[in-house]
Design a protein around this nucleic acid. Structure first.
Length: 289
DNA sequence: GAAGGGCCTTTGAG
DNA sequence: ACTCAAAGGCCCT
């Protein structure tokens, strides 16, 4: 099946760059789980080639129609965002122009809010290879199995499943000090103390205020969730690489507090903050040696 | 409000 | 092989 689009899209940069953690290279394309559906994706000149491995009505659940899949992919890759226009706008800034250069088809994703939240709670003081391992073990242990005809793949576990798993089980998966954070946040979500999906209709500041009440969620994790799953593109997550990028490239090497950096970035990038952040992150991280 | 230390473990340089 | 930093921060002081 083909989802036609003329939007720029680099699958490897977008799916392997540390926004999402469940996509693997598979031949020329990528395989991963989108909701309850196991997909193989591949970029072609005319759009996105996709193929669902999920067997039809496995477990009584009807396979998703191709129309529904198209819409899901359209939303996931944010194909409504005019990436070239975003590049033109951000590229007026000479520093950003440099950052953009090597990452032409890098898009922001629109992920499931709970999965995004859980992954970024796990990301704290960790690294991408490890986060990928952590998330995979979480899915295998507590996610619903999905039969594919090429083996079983696991969906991302629900908040209820993680809550029932318990803190100790999470520690045994290697979550370390993040285990109680994820467990307690899962419980709060499962109990309805925070309505994640409902945050999408709130203004950025209010949604953020709600997110940081969750254990293990500070401003950085909250901004990742807001940017990568809740459509708040004015969010500007500041991690060690982005902090370094701002200080080295814009601020003459002077140390600023994160609070000051956030205000500076908000003023500088506005509603394109999330895109700007993602390019700065990839750029600076790529320079490590 | 700002700054600093501890936290669990895994991963991949060296 | 085997050690040893470094890792998309958060929380508490």
């Amino acid at each position: 099946m083909l989802l036609r689009t003329s939007q720029p899209l680099d699958m490897a940069l977008t799916l392997e760059g540390g926004q999402a953690f469940r996509w693997r290279r598979e031949g020329e394309g990528h395989r991963g789980v989108l909701g309850q559906c196991v997909l193989e994706l591949r970029k072609s000149p005319s759009g996105i080639q996709f193929h669902a491995l999920t067997s039809e009505d496995a477990g009584g659940k009807p396979g998703r129609s191709s129309r529904a899949l198209r819409e899901a992919l359209w939303r996931y890759f944010r194909l409504d965002d005019d990436l070239e226009a975003i590049h033109r706008e951000l590229g007026k800034d000479p520093v950003m122009a440099q950052a953009l250069q090597s990452f032409r088809g890098l898009r922001l994703l629109r992920q499931d809010p709970w999965e995004c939240l859980a992954c970024f709670i796990c990301s704290v003081d960790s690294n991408i290879p490890r986060i990928i391992g952590t998330v995979e073990r979480l899915a295998q242990a507590f996610g619903a199995p999905i039969a594919t005809g090429q083996g079983v793949v696991h969906a991302f576990p629900t908040p209820q499943a993680v809550a029932e798993a318990g803190e100790e089980a999470l520690r045994r998966l290697g979550l370390g000090f993040r285990a109680p954070y994820l467990w307690r946040s899962a419980r709060m979500i499962a109990d309805g103390e925070v309505d994640l999906a409902g945050l999408r209709s709130l203004p950025y500041a209010e949604a953020k205020r709600a997110l940081v009440t969750l254990p293990g969620v500070g401003e950085k994790v909250a901004d990742c969730v807001l940017a990568f799953s809740l459509d708040k593109l004015e969010a500007f997550p500041i991690d060690r690489w982005v902090r370094r990028a701002l200080i080295e490239e814009y601020l003459g090497g002077h140390r600023w507090t994160d609070r000051a950096l956030r205000e500076w970035a908000q003023d500088r990038f506005g509603v394109l903050g999330a895109y700007a952040q993602q390019y700065l992150f990839q750029w600076k991280r790529g320079q490590r040696a």
